Amino acid sequence: MKTSLMLLFVWLVVANVSGMLPSKDNHWRRAYVLLALFVPLIVYVFYENPWWVGLLAIVAAASVFRWPVIYFMRWVRRGLKSE
């Protein structure tokens, strides 16, 4: 197995375990750290694997970051409706 995929799986496990732990700030601090780690990781996944593996990695991250993705989509829709 390639290094980028192993790192991605470790990231996914850490993200899911950190989501199960209690948090006073609704996990936002952990989400920022995980997102900062995910950006270079996804570039590495796209670099080392076929493009469809990178898209699967993005879908996996979107399932972990579902609320930030939902908020982003709402923000985009509001921006498109105001024009």
Rank of each mutant, 00 (worst) to 15 (best):
A15Q: 03
V45L: 15
W51C: 02
V39K: 15
L41S: 11
H27A: 04
G54I: 00
W75G: 11
L41I: 03
F38E: 00
V13F: 06
F65H: 07
S23F: 02
L37W: 08
R78N: 04
Y47P: 04
M20N: 14
V64A: 03
M20K: 03
S4Y: 06
W11Y: 02
W75K: 05
L34C: 04
W28T: 12
R77D: 08
A15Y: 00
G19F: 03
K2M: 08
A36V: 04
F72D: 13
G79A: 04
P40T: 06
I70N: 06
F38V: 01
F46M: 08
H27E: 04
W28I: 13
L37P: 08
V53C: 10
P50R: 10
Y32E: 09
T3I: 11
P50G: 06
K81W: 15
V33C: 14
M1S: 06
L55E: 02
V39N: 03
L37A: 12
Y32T: 09
R78H: 05
R66T: 07
A61D: 09
G54D: 00
L12G: 01
K2V: 06
W11P: 01
P22N: 05
K81I: 13
K81L: 13
R78Y: 13
F46W: 14
L56N: 12
A60F: 14
G19I: 00
P40E: 10
K2W: 09
E83A: 08
R29S: 10
E48H: 12
Y47I: 11
F46T: 01
N49A: 12
W28C: 05
A36T: 06
W52V: 04
A57F: 07
R29T: 15
V14Y: 00
W51V: 11
W67K: 14
